[in-house]
């Protein structure tokens, strides 16, 4: 399989082969893997790697072969664009709509990148790490009290335990 994708860097992740390709090779790589038997599209998703850009990952299966493969690329943060796989796997269209609304990635050649889950008029890409989740700002974190403390004591206490995955106030949000 490794010689299918010229220029790909192969590794392993979550117990299966992982191919990293340049964004320009994205469409050709997905097509080559499909034509070589990994023709069951499982998922497409993205990861915000902050300054490094966005990783876009697809997971493909071969049902008769019972094998799977991950294909990954990285698009720059300043201009997150990638060829749509909707012409290769019809099911990718939904996943790309979701990646588009959640991460603000543009999928070139997609038949209609309308928001899939977000309400009309929603502003911003909520799965970007610099997106401020309003519900995380207006509510106090229930994990703040130390054992043996009430939440009122925690609110005035000097030592603050911060919620995992939520940066400290002042260090996040769009500048």
């Amino acid at each position: 399989m490794t010689d299918l994708l010229p220029g790909a860097r192969w590794g392993r992740a979550t117990g299966r082969p992982l191919a990293d390709v340049d964004p320009g090779d994205w469409l050709a790589s997905a097509t080559a893997l499909r034509d070589a038997g990994h023709d069951y599209f499982d998922l497409l998703t993205a990861v915000d790697e902050q300054e490094a850009g966005f990783d876009v990952v697809v997971h493909l299966w071969s049902v008769p072969g019972r094998t799977s493969v991950l294909l990954r690329t990285r698009v720059p943060r300043a201009e997150p664009r990638l060829d749509s796989l909707a012409g290769v796997f019809k099911g990718a269209a939904w996943h790309e709509r979701q990646a588009a609304e959640m991460f603000g990635i543009d999928f070139h050649g997609h038949p209609g990148l309308d928001p899939l889950l977000l309400p009309d008029g929603f502003d911003g890409a909520p799965l970007r790490k610099d997106f401020v989740l309003a519900s995380r700002v207006v509510r106090p974190w229930p994990g703040a009290p130390e054992p043996g403390q009430s939440s009122a004591e925690a609110a005035v206490g000097r030592r603050k335990t911060l919620p995992p995955g939520v940066p400290a106030p002042g260090t996040w949000g769009s500048p």
């Binding site: 995380r136 509510r139 974190w141 229930p142 994990g143 009290p145 054992p147 043996g148 403390q149 009430s150 939440s151 335990t161 919620p163 995992p164």
Partner: peptide, 15 residues
């Protein structure tokens, strides 16, 4: 309470 991703467990205690 700290691990809950939905922030929906509320605990109060004293010593």
């Amino acid at each position: 309470a700290r691990e809950c991703p939905a922030w929906c467990i509320h605990l109060e205690s004293h010593k």
